[in-house]
């Protein structure tokens, strides 16, 4: 049943470019996909370890900048007479660098701020994002500052015996993002269903008890931060090579807030949550735009919907639907094994 649903969903996603001819719609889907990957990565931290990172866009931004810079090459003075230069590198290598460096930043943030948990962690992540934005804005020599990095090359792969293939245009990028999203999903799903994911969940649920059975607190929190940051960095790299321009606005708080909304509305701590939330809040502005006459109306509608979801479904859409589903299942077949009678805080 479950397997069938997943296959059907995959088939649907794979076939999209066949029946969606409109390039603008594909563009919206690609950008939504990229942000959904970022939301999935945030969910690993927020939903599974319970740590709220309000600077998550920083990993996304670092991924975008690193990938752009490595693929464009740069020459920068680290001291008046110390010039560091890098020739343009292949895009796939640049993307790998982006993932690695974003992961490294996640490690650093994790080490520093998991010593100070809760509200302090939130503050550290916000500050880190702001610092990153200021660096991107002011380090002209490296980042071009507000002028932005332009003409970022698209991903190109050359398989032996075949011509080089460039990911230019909507259809190839759609598939690229889809594959990346599936990869991110698989990595996160494997992780949360393993001993590592259980350790993260245990720390969120009851940290003293978790450490009493031998779970190392810092180790698993840092692991979650590294994987989360690396995936967010990958999303940023995809973004840079798709849009082909990166400016300091990628570090904006608004992007982090968007990711948090996607995760919370969809259902934090569930694998499907950020996907559902990502699709809804990624596509919604475009849908509203096509109906509403004025942008103010769009944003008010957006806001109202958000408040309604958070108010009526405090655990998010996915847990609410899952428990409705369970109830329906139980009504049909009373003998079915109860998979935990969760306290029902569902829509009336």
């Amino acid at each position: 049943m479950r397997r069938l649903a997943i296959l059907a969903l995959l088939a649907l996603l794979l076939s999209v470019p066949l029946w969606v001819g409109n390039f603008y719609v594909l563009h919206v889907l690609i950008v939504t996909g990229i942000f959904t990957i970022a939301a999935m990565s945030l969910n690993l931290l927020l939903g599974y370890t319970g740590q709220l990172s309000l600077g998550h866009a920083v990993f996304f931004g670092i991924g975008a900048y690193v990938s752009a810079l490595v693929s464009l090459g740069f020459a920068v003075h680290l001291a008046p007479d110390w010039l560091v230069t890098l020739d343009p590198q292949p895009v796939w290598l640049a993307m790998l660098c982006a993932v690695a460096i974003a992961g490294l930043c996640g490690w650093a943030i994790g080490r520093v701020s998991f010593k100070v948990r809760g509200a302090y962690f939130v503050i550290v992540t916000i500050s880190f994002a702001e610092v990153a934005r200021l660096v991107a804005l002011n380090w002209d020599e490296l980042t071009q500052g507000p002028m932005a990095l332009n003409n970022i090359p698209p991903l190109a792969v050359s398989l032996p015996g075949l011509d080089e293939f460039d990911f230019i245009g909507k259809v190839p990028n759609y598939y690229l993002v889809l594959v990346a999203a599936i990869l991110a999903y698989v990595v996160i799903a494997r992780l949360v269903h393993s001993r590592a994911g259980r350790a993260m969940i245990a720390l969120k649920e009851n940290e003293p008890l978790a450490s009493s059975v031998g779970i190392e607190v810092t180790r698993y929190l840092v692991l979650a931060a590294v994987v989360s940051a690396a995936i967010a960095g990958a999303a940023g790299a995809l973004y840079a090579h798709y849009i082909q321009i990166v400016d300091p606005n990628v570090f904006m708080f608004l992007y982090t807030v968007t990711m948090v909304i996607m995760v919370v509305a969809g259902g934090k701590g569930t694998l499907a949550g950020p996907i559902v939330g990502g699709l809804i809040f990624g596509l919604l502005p475009e849908v509203l735009r096509s109906f509403a006459i004025r942008p103010e109306v769009q944003w008010v509608a957006y806001g109202v919907l958000m408040i309604l979801i958070v108010y009526l479904l405090p655990n998010g859409i996915v847990p609410a639907v899952a428990s409705l589903w369970n109830r329906a299942g139980r009504a049909d077949a009373p003998a079915a094994p109860t998979t935990g009678s969760s306290p029902g805080r569902i829509v009336p």
Partner: peptide
């Protein structure tokens, strides 16, 4: 003190943490 939001089986699986060995790489 238990992991209240998880199933009984999950609680024990968490307790078995030290009995498992798989590396993060192998898991991924």
């Amino acid at each position: 003190s238990v992991f209240a939001g998880r199933t009984v089986l999950d609680n024990i699986l968490i307790g078995l943490h030290l009995q498992s060995r798989q590396s993060v790489l192998a898991i991924i």
